[in-house]
Amino acid sequence: MMFHVKAVRAIAGSTLTVLSLLAATSLASAADKITIMVGGYEKQIYLPAKLAEGLGYFKDEGLDVELLNEAAGVDAENQLLAGAVQGVVGFYDHCVDLQAKGKFVESVVQFSQAPGEVELVSNKYPDIKGFGDLKGKNLGVTGLGSSTNFLTLFMAAKAGLKPGDTVSVPVGAGGTFIAAMQQDKIQAGMTTEPTISRLLKTNEARVLVDMRTVEGARAALGGTYPAASLYMETNWVNAHKPEVQKLANAFVKTLKFINTHSGAEIAEKMPKDFYVGDKDGYVAALDAGKGMFTADGVMPEDGPKTVLSVLSAFSKNVQGKQIDLAKTYTTEFVKAAK
């Protein structure tokens, strides 16, 4: 009888130990589950998100990362502020804009140093030669309050147009953008690859302003313009530094992959439906535009000032506000990346 009692106790103790280990493992896994919303992960400007997943770099870091797709960056931003996701792959300019509204988010990995955006104009309007000729026209943007909207408003102001001279129309990207231009719902619009190449190939549109390269961005915006990034709420970053470091490790490895491989090699790691039936065009766009990505995830030194200057040119939200740019990004994690 004594043996039975001891045996039962031993088994019970072992069972509790196993259960405790399983619970601890489960908690560790839950802690490393991170949800990131991407402002259109088929866009080449946000390529590092899906590429990191495809290369297995998240798993290498012991992370369980779920990527959610959202057509407009402003909607992804709202999901972050609501606590529905832990991070956003979107434009850095949201970090500046949100600080003006009293909310603190920061870029923890800076993917690009140029917007990768182009203002396309419909070939139904051959008389439009510059941004100043867009007065009275409907201009496509991904969403109202999105980075494409910010850049459109800046370019309009720079060309001497007043608020109300143009109408921003939210049309997303890809097929919805193309349909809006074909149906004359927009006469021009700001978009990215592969949408750009698709409209150029069919000769339905032409380039009015090109910001796909660092040089093009400097000419259009007056300086280096850090754009695509992984940004997160500052409080979350401070409370989850180990997880953020793992994300930085994965993304810095991804950026190095982009900088050391051809467009064709990168394309092979991406979902095939991203080619939209034109792999050659997709690869050509990658080869032409991958220079916009940083090599190491570090914020370009002169970039934040350019973004603040651009937003201050048209945004009443930002004008007159004291913005602490040092709190809109951090290089702590990328500089410590493996």
Rank of each mutant, 00 (worst) to 15 (best):
L134H: 06
Q99M: 14
A100M: 06
V118C: 11
G132H: 13
A114Q: 10
S146E: 06
V118E: 08
S147L: 05
D133N: 12
P126A: 11
G143P: 04
G136H: 06
S147N: 13
Q99L: 10
I128K: 09
S147W: 04
L98D: 06
L139G: 02
K135A: 15
F131C: 03
V88M: 02
A100P: 04
V88L: 04
V88S: 01
V105F: 03
N123A: 07
P115K: 11
C95N: 15
Q110A: 07
Q113W: 01
G140Q: 04
L144A: 03
A100F: 05
V96N: 10
K135Q: 12
Y92N: 07
E119Y: 15
D127V: 05
V109W: 10
D127P: 00
L134N: 04
L134S: 06
D97F: 13
D93G: 00
T142F: 02
F131V: 15
E106F: 03
I128T: 09
Q113M: 13
D93T: 13
L98P: 00
G116L: 05
F91P: 14
H94T: 04
S146R: 07
V89F: 09
L134D: 06
T142D: 00
G145S: 05
K124E: 14
V96K: 12
C95R: 02
D127Y: 11
L139I: 15
A100S: 13
Q99G: 10
E117C: 11
G132K: 15
I128W: 11
G145V: 03
L144T: 07
D133T: 11
V108C: 07
I128L: 13
G136W: 05
Q113Y: 01
V88R: 01
G140R: 04
D93V: 01
V141K: 09
G132D: 14
V121H: 08
S147V: 04
S112H: 02
D97C: 00
S147F: 03
A114K: 10
K135E: 12
V118Y: 11
S107M: 02
V108N: 05
G130F: 02
H94I: 01
V141I: 14
D97A: 09
G140C: 06
Q99V: 08
K129V: 14
Y125A: 07
G136Q: 05
K101Y: 00
N138K: 13
V141R: 08
G102R: 02
K103E: 12
